[in-house]
Amino acid sequence: MHVTLRALIRAQSLTLSEVLYQDLRLAESVIPVDFVEGVRALLVDKDNSPKWTHENLEAVPLDLVNAAFAY
């Protein structure tokens, strides 16, 4: 959610091609982490019990959010 909010705010001042580039880079940085776990919990094992990297939003380090935009 942190990354999504920042991406939306940044997108207001970007061109369409810049927004698409941003979205591609962000997808590449986020998919290897919790996206795969969400797919596992919902579609593969169907246990609906994902084991997220961070316990809650407050536990997400700002450095991790910043790293998603370091492209």
Score class of each variant (00 low, 15 high):
residue 14 L to P: 06
residue 3 V to R: 01
residue 17 S to Q: 12
residue 30 V to D: 06
residue 36 V to S: 04
residue 11 A to G: 13
residue 38 G to S: 08
residue 29 S to I: 01
residue 49 S to Y: 07
residue 26 L to N: 02
residue 7 A to K: 07
residue 13 S to Q: 15
residue 45 D to R: 08
residue 12 Q to L: 14
residue 58 E to H: 10
residue 56 N to G: 02
residue 56 N to Q: 11
residue 15 T to I: 01
residue 14 L to N: 06
residue 29 S to E: 12
residue 26 L to D: 02
residue 26 L to I: 15
residue 22 Q to T: 07
residue 55 E to D: 10
residue 66 N to K: 07
residue 32 P to N: 05
residue 10 R to L: 15
residue 32 P to M: 03
residue 1 M to F: 06
residue 13 S to C: 07
residue 12 Q to K: 14
residue 32 P to L: 01
residue 25 R to Q: 14
residue 46 K to Q: 15
residue 60 V to P: 03
residue 31 I to Y: 12
residue 15 T to A: 10
residue 46 K to D: 04
residue 61 P to E: 05
residue 53 T to Q: 07
residue 4 T to I: 14
residue 43 L to Q: 01
residue 9 I to W: 13
residue 26 L to S: 03
residue 16 L to G: 04
residue 47 D to K: 09
residue 69 F to W: 03
residue 11 A to C: 08
residue 6 R to P: 00
residue 25 R to C: 15
residue 12 Q to T: 08
residue 70 A to W: 11
residue 38 G to V: 02
residue 13 S to R: 13
residue 54 H to Y: 15
residue 47 D to A: 03
residue 34 D to H: 04
residue 57 L to K: 05
residue 70 A to N: 15
residue 13 S to N: 12
residue 29 S to F: 00
residue 30 V to C: 09
residue 45 D to K: 09
residue 42 L to K: 09
residue 2 H to L: 10
residue 11 A to N: 06
residue 69 F to L: 08
residue 10 R to P: 00
residue 22 Q to D: 15
residue 43 L to V: 11
residue 21 Y to W: 13
residue 23 D to N: 12
residue 40 R to V: 05
residue 47 D to I: 02
residue 24 L to Q: 10
residue 5 L to M: 12
residue 27 A to L: 12
residue 12 Q to R: 13
residue 54 H to T: 04
residue 12 Q to Y: 14
residue 5 L to P: 00
residue 9 I to V: 15
residue 49 S to W: 06
residue 50 P to H: 02
residue 5 L to Q: 07
residue 32 P to K: 07
residue 41 A to G: 05
residue 35 F to H: 07
residue 49 S to C: 07
residue 29 S to Q: 13
residue 32 P to H: 08
residue 27 A to N: 09
residue 7 A to C: 11
residue 39 V to Q: 04
residue 8 L to N: 09
residue 51 K to N: 10
residue 6 R to Y: 13
residue 1 M to A: 07
residue 44 V to H: 01
residue 42 L to F: 15
residue 7 A to H: 12
residue 24 L to G: 03
residue 40 R to Y: 14
residue 69 F to M: 08
residue 47 D to N: 15
residue 44 V to R: 06
residue 19 V to M: 02
residue 71 Y to P: 10
residue 47 D to E: 06
residue 4 T to H: 11
residue 8 L to Q: 09
residue 12 Q to P: 03
residue 11 A to D: 03
residue 29 S to L: 03
residue 35 F to M: 08
residue 67 A to L: 07
residue 48 N to E: 10
residue 2 H to A: 07
residue 44 V to L: 14
residue 60 V to Y: 02
residue 57 L to G: 09
residue 63 D to F: 08
residue 29 S to G: 13
residue 20 L to G: 01
residue 56 N to F: 12
residue 11 A to T: 02
residue 62 L to H: 05
residue 23 D to E: 11
residue 8 L to R: 11
residue 21 Y to G: 02
residue 19 V to T: 11
residue 41 A to R: 07
residue 49 S to R: 10
residue 33 V to S: 08
residue 16 L to A: 08
residue 55 E to R: 10
residue 67 A to V: 05
residue 50 P to S: 02
residue 17 S to G: 02
residue 52 W to R: 03
residue 62 L to G: 02
residue 15 T to D: 05
